[in-house]
Structure formats: C-alpha cells, structure tokens
Amino acid sequence: MIYSLCLILIGIGLYGILTKRNIVKIIIGFVIMEAGVHLLLILIGYRMQGEAPILQPGMKLSEFITRAVDPLPQALTLTSIVIGLGVLALMIAIAIRLYERYKTFDITEMRRLKG
C-alpha cells in the first residue's frame, strides 16, 4: 500500500512535466518526481523496528546485524539527492536564459524551440 502512495507522488510529478506550460512548473514536477523515487528507495531498505545503520560504542555486533536498516540504498540515495540539486541548477540556468530571450516562461510562446 505504502509503495503505491510513492507511485502516486511519481505520477503527479509526471503529470506536471507533461501538461504544464510554465517552465518553472515543469521543473517543480521534476523535483516532485525525484522526491517520490528517493522515498521509494529508502522504503525498500527499511526493516521492522529498524535502527539507523550507525554503530555506536557499546553496541553488540550480533544484535546490530539483526536490527540495522540497509545502508546501501541510503548511500546511493544520498548521491542521487546531491546530483539532483546540480541538475536543477543547470535547468534553472537554462530557464533564466530563456526568460531573458523571450520575456516569458510559457513554453508554447517560444517559437524557435519548435522542431
């Protein structure tokens, strides 16, 4: 059930990307979609009564192995979040230049982009 809720979030992001005319709204849809994917990845790595995968002094390793959540999806999600910010900066830079050129964020009015 909880995975389907993530899927709804991804679907809303996709809807924004495909149907909106404002370029900032399209970027917002992209960010929403990204949030859904990150949450789905973390949910897959969770285990019931799980603890953060941080080993503290005085913890027994045998007990830690049965309780810690999966560190691998967490590490890769961390990578993905940071890359998402870099890509967003690139998209915003292009949007600013398009605005200076066409004086609008509306993609249907940018005639020269039409193929």
């Binding site: 949450l39 973390i42 953060a52 959540v69 967490q74 979040i81």
Partner: peptide, 12 residues
C-alpha cells in the same frame, strides 16, 4: 527519512 532510520539522508 528520519522515521525510516536514515538520519544522514534527512540532513542532506
């Protein structure tokens, strides 16, 4: 993320 045992991701 904090509830799901991922404090590092939450900070980021």
């Amino acid at each position: 993320f904090l509830f799901l045992g991922a404090p590092d991701i939450a900070f980021t």
